[in-house]
């Protein structure tokens, strides 16, 4: 469904992705784990189109996306829940969700919104409040829910568990797992390697802009080197 080959990207003169190869099959949950600063966020930004690519290719459902602008990639079914708090702080929770479905004007938007509220009941409670007033964890949920409103066939998730209380982390990973039943393919980027590998089918390990290991998630969890470097075991 998504194939990345030789992807390079830079900030100014400093290259931070040195040729990434990666593929995601339809229906899979694939994770990219790696330490702080490895380049995981940069990779997702290249895929969603908000970060320029200096070499390599991105092919999504048979179409080369490398020169397609970010807003048009959403239309093709590739949506990103960005790192941090990239929500519309001045708008209400409900307006944020409605804008998530910016490309649609049919009855399904309302049903999708109800599904989002069922997934994250706290958002329903706060639907009429300005999103900037939500807690960090609630903003994170809103970012995920907003990305789902775009009806993606492939969802790019950047550190959904970051900064969340442990009970919420478990809830977020449950949500990721449940996306499989909704036919949403997931590319999940995480520092929380254990949580991510537990829900994923396959995983990649990224170190300073390169993929250093890949394989079935179960194998990676069992791997001695990964246990030592990322799982603290």
């Amino acid at each position: 469904m998504l194939t990345v080959e030789g992807l390079r990207s830079r900030y100014g003169r400093i290259e931070v992705l040195h040729g990434i190869d990666l593929d995601v099959a339809s229906g899979e949950i694939v994770t990219v784990v790696g330490a702080n600063g490895a380049g995981k966020t940069t990779l997702l930004k290249c895929l969603s189109g908000i970060q320029p690519v200096s070499a390599g290719s991105i092919v999504f459902r048979g179409e080369t996306l490398t020169t397609v602008p970010a807003h048009a990639r959403v239309r093709r079914g590739l949506a990103q829940s960005p790192e941090g708090r990239q929500i519309f702080t001045n708008l209400t929770v409900e307006e944020n969700l409605r804008l998530g479905a910016y490309l649609f004007a049919d009855d399904k938007v309302e049903r999708d919104m109800q599904d989002a509220f069922a997934m994250f009941p706290i958002l329903k409670e706060k639907r009429n409040l300005a999103a900037g007033g939500l807690s960090g964890g609630q903003q994170q949920m809103l970012a995920i829910a907003r990305a789902l409103m775009a009806r993606p066939s492939c969802l790019l998730l950047d550190e959904p568990s970051m900064g969340l209380a442990p009970i919420l982390v478990a809830q977020i990973f449950d949500v990721v797992k449940s996306l499989k039943a909704l036919d949403v393919t997931v590319l999940l980027v995480e520092q929380n390697a254990f949580g991510a590998l537990s829900v994923a089918d396959r995983g990649y390990v990224m170190e300073t802009g390169r993929i250093t290991m890949s394989g079935p998630a179960a194998d990676l969890i069992a791997d001695e080197r990964i246990r030592a470097a990322y799982l603290g075991i």
Binding site: I50, A70, T89
Partner: peptide, 12 residues
């Protein structure tokens, strides 16, 4: 409010 986020929801 947030130009990057706007692009990410499909706004040109």
């Amino acid at each position: 409010n947030n130009r990057v986020a706007a692009q990410l929801v499909g706004i040109n």
